[in-house]
Write a protein that binds this DNA or RNA. Structure first.
Lengths: 213, 213
DNA sequence: ACGGGATGGTACCGGTCGGTATCGCTATCT
DNA sequence: AGATAGCGATACCGACCGGTACCATCCCGT
C-alpha cells in the first residue's frame, strides 16, 4: 500500500539530548501528531528517540499508556493557552472573548493537522478506549470555560454563543485537513467576530485593525 | 495493544446477497466507517463479504483503490442530500437555507462517527495520498453550493454566512466523537438558525415549531 | 454439451505490529 | 572499589499487514 516511513527517513530526526524517557515521549508526541496514532509503531518511536524498544517499555507499560500521556499532554497545553488569555485582558471579559478567538485563530493557522485530541478521538475506534474519556473531559472543560466567559461578557444568549464559537473552532480545525488551509477555516476570525457581535458583545477598539485586508 | 476484532466477532455480519463486488464494497464501506480506514484490513473485508482476499483483488487493484471508491461514494451520497434539499423548497432560497441546516442536523444526529470524508482526511497522513484530493474536491463543492444558497437567500454577507455555517456543521460532526453526542453538536440547529437570522434571513413560519423544547 | 471465465479456498511472500527475553555495557552512588 | 540500576542492542514471539500464486469448482453463454 504505502511505506510512509523507511529507514533513513529524512523526516525522522534522532534526538539524543535529555533523559531517555523525555526523548521517547517527545518523539512519540511528534510522531503521533504528524502520522496519527495508528500510523506510528513503537519501534519507530524508539528509533526516533535514539534508543530501543526495550528502553521504551521500561518507561511505559504499553503503547496505550503512551497514548494516554500524549492526550493529557495535549490537553494540558491547551489549558496553558487559556491561562494566557485570562491573564491578558484582566477584568475585561468582552476583550477576553475576542482575544480568545484571535488566539485560537492564530494557533490554528500555525498548524495543519488540526486538533490532536479530536484526531485521536477519530482514530481510537476501539469503543471504550481509555483515551476517549481523557479527550471528552478536556473538551468539556473547554466548553465550560467558554460558556463562563460568554456569561461574564454579557452576551444575550451566553450558552448559545459559547456553543456556536465552540463549533466554529472545532470546525475550523478539522476542515484544515479536509478542505485545505485556504478553505473556510481561513475565515475563522471574521466568522467568530461576526457571531460574537451579533450576540451583543461589542468589539473592543483596540482589536479593530487586527483583521487583515 | 488491542484486538478490535477477533474471529467470530458478533459485529461482523457475513453478507452473501448480491454480486461479490457489491458485497465487498458494501462491507468495506461499512467497516471503514466503523473502524476507520487504517483499522480495517483487506482480509477482514473479504471475510465480512463472505469471500476471499483473492476475490477482492480481482475487483480492486489495491486497498487504496477501494478507499478512493469509498470516498467517492460518500461524497456522492452527500450530493444526493443536497439535491433533496433543493427539490424540497423550490424557489424559496431562504427556506432552503433553513431546510439545509435542519436536514444536516438530523443527518448528523443519526450518526455517531461524524463525517467519513473528514475522518479519512485525518487518517490519510501519507502526504499526497490520492484520497485527499477527492475529499477536498467534495468539501469545496459543498462550500460553493452553500455560498450560492446564501447569496440567493439575500443574506447581508453571504460569503461570510456560508463559511460560518460550513464551520458549524463540520464542527458539529467532528465534536460528536470527541465531546460526545450531548455536547455542543446537539445544539447545531439552534446555533445555525441564530446565525442565519443574524445575517438578515428570516426564519420561515412553517419551520417555527420544529425546534424541540 | 461444452468451454471459459469468474469464483472460493488455501497457502504463501516479505514486512510490520505490540510486546518480551536476554545479553553485555556503563554510569552512578555508597 | 564494588554493587546496582539503567542502558543499547539483538533476537525472538504470535499475529496481522497488503498483495500474490495456484488450483479446483461452478455457473453461464454459446
Amino acid at each position: 500500500m504505502n511505506k510512509e516511513k523507511s529507514s533513513s527517513d529524512p523526516e525522522v530526526q534522532v534526538s539524543r539530548a535529555g533523559k531517555p524517557r523525555d526523548r521517547i515521549f517527545d518523539c512519540a508526541q511528534d510522531l503521533f501528531h504528524r502520522r496519527g496514532i495508528r500510523g506510528v509503531g513503537v519501534e519507530a518511536i524508539a528509533e526516533a528517540a535514539g534508543t530501543s524498544k526495550m528502553a521504551l517499555y521500561r518507561h511505559f507499560d504499553s503503547k496505550d499508556e503512551l497514548i494516554i500521556e500524549y492526550l493529557n499532554y495535549k490537553g494540558r497545553k491547551s489549558d496553558e493557552i487559556w491561562a494566557e488569555i485570562e491573564a491578558q485582558n484582566p477584568g475585561d471579559p468582552g476583550g477576553q472573548l475576542y482575544g480568545f478567538v484571535d488566539k485560537a485563530a492564530t494557533f490554528i493557522a500555525g498548524d495543519e493537522r488540526g486538533c490532536d485530541l479530536a484526531n485521536a478521538a477519530i482514530e481510537l475506534t476501539e469503543q471504550g478506549h481509555p483515551g476517549l474519556r481523557v479527550i471528552e473531559e478536556f473538551k468539556m472543560r473547554q466548553r465550560e470555560r467558554l460558556t463562563n466567559l460568554c456569561h461574564a461578557a454579557g452576551a444575550s444568549q451566553p450558552d448559545l454563543l459559547a456553543d456556536t464559537l465552540f463549533l466554529l473552532i472545532e470546525g475550523a480545525r478539522v476542515s484544515r485537513r479536509s478542505v485545505g488551509t485556504n478553505g473556510p477555516s481561513a475565515n475563522l476570525v471574521r466568522t467568530s467576530r461576526g457571531v460574537i457581535a451579533s450576540f451583543g458583545v461589542p468589539l473592543p477598539e483596540a482589536l479593530d485593525a487586527v483583521l487583515e485586508h
